[in-house]
Design a protein around this nucleic acid. Structure first.
Lengths: 250, 250
DNA sequence: AAAAATTCAATCAAAATCATTCAAAATCAT
DNA sequence: ATGATTTTGAATGATTTTGATTGAATTTTT
């Protein structure tokens, strides 16, 4: 195996798992311990990873990919289906805003229309957007480490210079009375502004978020189309009295 | 087989696989090792691929860390020393601009002062900045895939709302007559604006960039302190007549 | 706190790959 | 047909990478 290939594999495995043992690398790459040690030394020099006793770990990259716990989350399939349906609402030549949600992340590989322009505040989306050859703009502002998202007043102001055909937002609470809510006030401001600037707004949320409420109000429930999965038919029917709800099924 | 045919086949195989061994090419093209080596040398000269030990790789592979796309971590040790000296110019509470240069990347781990705020347009810097717990803002604008940098008029405008104690810039050409230059006009505009908005400007460049000129003018040479390594003592002395030059030695 | 186990870096020989050189073969121009 | 030029493949010495070994360092266990 070429050295370059080994390095790429090492980083791919590391991205999956967050940390990895040297012995695991020896087995999976079918190379000697000495070779893997040299590889890790070189990758550390290039600041692509950091060495720990017995192996290697990713640099602190919270949220670069959906958190490892969340990636293993039972709702992953549902999120993919929500993502697929969401992407189907995008047309050729659309300008869309994608916020930093994990379900929004799932929709990116399904975006197949031509000449789509994306503005996003989610750094975790960048590799997929590049992979999909989608023309991408990034919101400017403060980096929020916990979610690898761009937030803050500068971000809101940056956003205000644009308009979108559609926006796609993650949300943590969707309630007929309390509206659309999210835990973080900074992100709530951005989501609110994105809705104001878009012709159509979509909220992507799995059913666990329905009839939940979190800290910061984003908008009234009527202001966005909810894309969710089936959980409780009655609950969805009840929600539909207040909002346009699109449901995916497994 | 005609040389041209072989070249096309080599590139086709490479597009499929991302990397390929020289021995595989010998087998698949039914040509000698010497011939294939010459082919790879020529294709590299044409910048159609890059050679790695034992074979070849695509120049830019989607999803691969930008820092891994260099054949060897070119001038790595020198860049680290330049980076270390550059970081030593940062004081507590400084607001600094870091552009998307590879030598600028090297300085991040050496930033130890307290309460430093960084604004950057280089996405490759994000993991290191997070690792170093540095308060980070990101420029807003268009994503330039080739360098993983934010560029464009929006980026220049975003920058214009800030001021910096210091800025640290990569540069490809440093010449007493033609000034500071870089290949890409979009990036040149950003660098120019950064210099205008900073109390002190530093250019980080290894000696291979001295007395070189590239396409787009950024500023006159007097407008920044050059941080470089020793290459030719006379050349450095001559440069010092025009600009403040700081030299690192191995 | 000490011993045992595990992991680490350094070193070195072997293997693999590299660039250079040169003669032979193939192609081109006259 | 012939001489000139280009391309090819083999040989050789130089360089790089790999894997094994060993003593040192670190972590785990008692």
């Amino acid at each position: 195996m070429l050295t370059t290939e080994r390095h790429q594999l090492i980083l791919a495995l590391l991205k999956e798992q967050g940390t990895i043992k040297l012995q695991d690398l020896v087995e999976q790459l079918q190379a000697s311990e000495s070779t893997i040690r040299r590889d890790l030394v070189q990758l550390e020099e290039m600041k692509a990873l950091k060495r720990v006793h017995g192996g290697a770990a990713l640099l602190k990259q919270k949220g670069i990919e959906p958190s490892l716990n969340e990636k293993r989350y039972a709702n992953h399939l549902e999120k993919q289906q929500i993502g697929r349906l969401a992407a189907s609402y995008i047309d050729n030549d659309d300008c869309v805003y994608l916020d930093a949600g994990t379900t929004v992340f799932e929709m990116i590989p399904f975006i197949k229309e031509k000449n789509v322009t994306v503005l996003t505040n989610g750094l975790m989306h960048i590799p997929l957007l590049m992979e999909a050859d989608i023309k991408t703009f990034l919101v400017g502002g403060k980096l929020k480490v916990a979610t690898n998202a761009i937030v803050g007043s500068q971000a809101v102001q940056f956003l205000s210079d644009y308009r979108f055909d559609k926006c796609f937002l993650g949300m943590n609470g969707i309630h007929p009375d309390y509206g659309l809510t999210t835990p973080d006030p900074d992100e709530a401001l951005l989501k609110m502004r994105a809705i104001q600037l878009s012709n159509k707004s979509y909220v992507l949320a799995d059913s666990s978020k329905l009839y939940e409420t979190t800290f910061a109000k984003v908008a009234a429930i009527e202001e966005a189309t909810i894309i969710t999965d089936v959980n409780d038919e009655e609950a969805v029917l009840s929600l539909q009295k207040h909002s346009n709800v699109k449901v995916v099924t497994p």
